[in-house]
Computed example of a mutant assay.
Amino acid sequence: MTATSAFFERLTVAGQDPRFSKVCGSVRFDIGDGGHLEQWLLVIDHGRMRVTRSGGPATTVIQVSARVADAMARGEVNGLAAITRGDILVDGDLGLALRLGRLFPREAGPLQRDDPDSGR
């Protein structure tokens, strides 16, 4: 199981996140790895989260490589920084995409722990 798959599995098991109680929307993650495309659809309805492996329509689509998606799922990459670098492309509601950063772990790597300016 990849870190990305484990991340979506945790969301499925949790089913609810009070930090998203005022959020309604859907986000499709298009995760590319060479010629392979993996798609996950996250539907948020006032904090209730439903995850499926689907390429269905969504209000927001996030395109990311499998490498970056796994790094985010492990807490090694900040989503906003990845968007700024062009490692993540967002089509649709950028505010919703940025808010999803709350779902990802925030584990400081060795360089980040030693850097007081890292913001973590």
Rank of each mutant, 00 (worst) to 15 (best):
E9S: 07
E9R: 14
R10A: 05
L11V: 13
L11F: 13
L11C: 10
T12S: 11
T12P: 05
T12V: 06
T12I: 10
V13I: 11
V13Y: 07
V13A: 12
A14S: 05
A14Q: 13
A14W: 04
A14E: 11
Q16W: 05
Q16F: 10
D17H: 12
D17A: 05
D17L: 02
P18H: 03
P18F: 01
P18Y: 11
P18S: 12
R19S: 13
F20G: 04
F20K: 04
F20P: 08
F20N: 01
S21W: 07
K22C: 07
K22T: 13
K22V: 10
V23A: 03
V23I: 08
C24L: 04
C24R: 12
C24S: 01
G25Q: 08
G25K: 11
G25V: 07
G25C: 07
S26F: 11
S26V: 05
S26R: 15
V27A: 11
V27H: 03
R28T: 01
R28M: 00
F29K: 02
F29P: 05
F29Q: 03
F29C: 05
F29S: 03
D30C: 05
D30N: 04
I31P: 00
I31T: 00
I31S: 00
G32L: 03
G32P: 02
D33V: 00
D33L: 12
G34Q: 05
G34M: 04
G34C: 08
G35A: 10
H36P: 08
H36G: 06
H36S: 13
H36K: 13
H36Q: 11
H36N: 14
E38C: 10
Q39N: 08
W40S: 06
W40P: 13
W40A: 14
W40E: 11
L41G: 00
L42E: 03
L42H: 14
L42G: 12
I44L: 11
I44K: 13
